[in-house]
Write a protein that binds this DNA or RNA. Structure first.
Lengths: 196, 196
DNA sequence: ATTGAAATCGGCCTAGC
DNA sequence: GCTAGGCCGATTTCAAT
């Protein structure tokens, strides 16, 4: 379990800037060979740090409706599921879940019927209050800073340090803080597998 | 001035899904040749609809600080510049400017000193109120719907229809609702050029 | 059709037991 | 001294223009 190093961050920054940049180009910047860059990007994907590559679309040039910022006040224990459900809506682009149980989403509505939109995804009964505001503009400026890995042990929930270990089970990568947690997890996993 | 057609939208959707997908692969999906796909993507870049290609990073796995959602209440006529100034900060990832003059930003702070961060970019005197909330999570789920072009005439501000025209001036592409607007704009542009 | 980029593979080097 | 991980260079296959 190696943490991210400066080279990883540099590669990430270059990709944030232009994800279609050739590996050979990246290689020049970080003073490595193209295959080495490819390996590192593979590893970042494996780790889940890189979820994928997308296109940055200027939605203000597209006629998809009116952009709004919607804030919902829901019971704290429901905030998670509400946020997830709303995120699945096509019209919703960003969802934020605050620690005190508010859910803020940025969406684009065709006809101004925000509550109708919300009702498609969630039960409005559990919403105590809704605040809708028209957006004049929005910007996205991704950056990275000096990020390091912040993985959570799949067994005990503790922070995974460089002493941690990882294992691939059923094609998914899990991280653990120590060998004991890994072993315990694998045990339970196997039992579930054979049971199912 | 052709509007977006189904093929353009299909290409965009495929790119949203995976921006490193080979053009030949896209070509198969939309029943075109790879060079034709390349041409279309070039055009989408020209139009400004695609701003670029990026990587989708899972920031929840990265230790960059504490994510917060900050709302500022500022005079309506200052909202624009405040939003822009804050957007330039490294720690700020999203900025939203609402029609009623509120500015909402999503940022990541190292030490919890949000006002210190804000002070780096803007004059706190003009801020009437600040509301800071801790974020438990955030999601980004890009989608497209049935988008069509919504360009604004650079001269008169009207909507540009398929009858509109475009022109490249000083390496930037401008759109106009009609030939008259184009001519007027070009005139002013030339005068500014020679004056400067 | 030409140019160029990505994946793959064998071998090398280094670090850590 | 052995193993594991990371990197390189060459090659081949495939993509971009």
């Amino acid at each position: 379990m190696r943490d991210l190093d400066d080279t990883d961050r540099h590669i990430l920054r270059l990709l944030v800037d232009d994800a279609r940049r050739p590996y050979s180009d990246i290689a020049d910047h970080v003073d490595l060979s193209a295959p080495a860059v490819s390996d590192r990007i593979d590893r970042l994907r494996e780790l889940g740090v890189v979820r994928g590559f997308t296109v940055d679309v200027d939605r203000s040039l597209l006629n998809t409706g009116v952009p709004v910022l919607v804030e919902l006040d829901v019971p704290v224990d429901r905030a998670g599921e509400v946020a997830t459900a709303l995120g699945e809506l096509d019209a919703v682009e960003h969802t934020f879940e605050t620690a005190d149980g508010a859910v803020v989403v940025q969406a684009t509505v065709r006809d101004g019927d925000v509550t109708g939109l919300l009702a498609e995804a969630i039960d409005l009964e559990q919403v105590r209050d809704v605040d809708v505001r028209l957006l004049r503009g929005s910007e996205w400026s991704p950056s990275l800073g000096d990020a390091t890995l912040a993985l959570t042990c799949a067994e005990c929930g503790n922070h995974v340090t460089s002493e941690g270990e990882s294992a691939r089970l059923d094609d998914k990568l899990y991280h653990f803080c120590c060998g004991t947690c890994l072993a315990n997890f694998e045990d339970r996993f196997e039992r579930l597998q054979s049971g199912a």
